[in-house]
Structures are given as structure tokens and as C-alpha cells.
Design a protein around this nucleic acid. Structure first.
Lengths: 142, 142
DNA sequence: CACGACTCCTTGAGGAACTCAAGTAGTGTC
DNA sequence: GACACTACTTGAGTTCCTCAAGGAGTCGTG
């Protein structure tokens, strides 16, 4: 349909496929599922409460409950009730969780391995293109 | 760890995240799961027999059995025994399956939407970079 | 031909991820 | 204090996925 663009479409598909597979392997090597690794990663960024995590991971709140329950059982995160609003539970990563997260990062060879093939200039090029692709959507919503 | 590369790492992560989410939405809009859409897509490329599909999808043969069973129940694919080797079953996509596959392609707005922001020259640049990243692994194995 | 080794697929059991519906506990408002 | 509302949990149910085991078919070798 897109004519000459098909080759690029295929390349992006392959890229994402490889990336996902590499991440899954890395997580599994550290004893986690990809979803668990994602949650652990989200914790080091913005999300803190269960609800925020659900928003960030684009999934149901009850799914987060289960993920956190399993991670908590493994001692990687802990639930901390919010003193100001006792409905809210903050999730915080434990030292063990931080260690495992770093292990995932180390095992995730995609960036280091593949990206290492590019020159500094090419990386800048790629970064520029990504910035353009990732810019917030400007299409009408609601 | 990688110094200035961290920003690019994050961009790629976000890119893949967006891509995956968009594909999942597209599949779901057509009444499929992402895994089912993947299988349907793999069918139009190389894979034909159950085993080949398992190889292509990087998963267990028994998983393919289940996926195909569900897709077959929906009339999107059909199993055809190989006359030369009766252990083998080829999977072929039905007209209905082809229709659904096209619907997924149409609903998958990521390439058209995001990639449309790039100029032809930028797309060529991106394609070149992807080619470099996707080239077969040259690291020693076994 | 018959036996054994091997391949292809399926079945069964079980875990993890996910969703939806319903429920519990806490907050805020009038 | 009753009401609506929010945050999380629980329960039921589906799909994806894997591993172990089994049935059926193929092929080489004596």
C-alpha cells in the first residue's frame, strides 16, 4: 500500500521483534518476566502508587495488584500505605529489587550490542529521527 | 553506564513501547490478540507448517497448536495434511483470514501515522540505520 | 520385513499476564 | 450521617506460554 515504504515498515517490525525478544531474555535471565521487569523499571521513573503504575503500564489496576503481589513475595518491592490517604498504597523498590533491576539492565544486550555498531554521528542521527517520531500526537482527540 | 547514549536508549524503549501498544490495539480492533495477528502475519511470509511457524514465532510447537486451533475455530486458517509426509500439517490462511489480516494492517496506524512525519530523505536515513542495526549477529556462537 | 531412533504434532498440567465485575475500605461533600 | 466517589483487592475466566508425555508417521539398518 505504501509503496517504497514497505521495506522500512518491515525493518521496524524486525527491529521491534528483536528488541522485545532481547528484553524478554534479559528479564528471564534475572528470574523475572518481561512484565515484572517493566514494572520494576517504571518504579525507578515516575510511578509510585498502584494507580499510577497502572496508568504507566497501560493496564488494569487489578493486574498491577497481582504483579506487585508476586514481586513482593520475592522481596523486590514493598507496599507502603500513604499516611495522608489510607486508600493509597505506594510501591517502593527494595535494595534486592534494585539489584535485580540492574541485572536485567546488564543482561539486556540489545542497546550495547546493536547500538554499538553505529558511529557517534549515526547515533545522533537516529536520536533526531526518534525525537520526531516520538513527539506527542497532534491528531484531534475526544 | 553508557553516558550520552542513555537518551537514545530511552527513546528506543519509548519507540518500542508505542509500537507494541499500537499493534496490540490494531489486533484487538480486528478481534484478535497480538499473538494471533503475528501468526496470521507470519503465514503470509515464509512459514507454512506448524513447526516452521513455531520457529518463526520463537515459541513452543504446542503453543502453535493452540493458536492455530483458536484461529481455525474462527475460520481464519485451516490445517492441511501434507500428502508427502503425513506427520506434517500445513497451515493456510482462508479468505476470511486474509480479510482480517488486512483489517489489522489498516488499523495499525503506527507506520502511517508516525512515519508520515518524516520526509522521504529521513525515511531513507532511518532505513539505512535500521539495516545496520539488523544485520545478522557477528559475535561468536558455540 | 522388523526393529529402533527420530521427527512432527497434539494433549495435559500448570504458571503468568491480562480483563471485567463485584466488593471493601477510605475520602470528601452536603 | 448519608451520599457519591476514589483506590485497591478479590474472584472468575481467557489467552499465552512452557514443559513433560504420548500417538502417529518416517527412515535407516540388520
Amino acid at each position: 500500500m505504501t509503496g517504497a515504504g514497505d521495506a522500512l515498515d518491515q525493518q521496524l517490525w524486525d527491529f521491534v521483534y528483536l528488541y522485545d525478544a532481547a528484553y524478554d531474555r534479559a528479564a528471564r535471565a534475572a528470574g523475572l518476566s518481561a512484565a515484572q521487569a517493566c514494572l520494576l523499571d517504571a518504579l525507578t521513573r515516575g510511578g509510585r502508587s498502584m494507580g499510577e503504575l497502572a496508568d504507566e503500564l497501560l493496564c488494569d489496576a487489578s493486574n498491577v495488584t497481582q504483579l506487585v503481589t508476586r514481586l513482593e513475595a520475592g522481596g523486590l518491592v514493598s507496599r507502603i500505605p500513604d499516611p495522608d490517604d489510607r486508600r493509597v498504597r505506594h510501591v517502593s523498590i527494595t535494595p534486592a529489587g534494585r539489584r535485580v533491576r540492574r541485572a536485567v539492565g546488564r543482561a539486556f544486550d540489545f542497546p550495547s550490542g546493536r547500538l554499538g555498531r553505529l558511529t557517534e554521528e549515526e547515533r545522533l542521527q537516529l536520536s533526531g529521527l526518534m525525537a520526531k517520531l516520538l513527539a506527542p500526537d497532534t491528531s484531534p482527540s475526544s
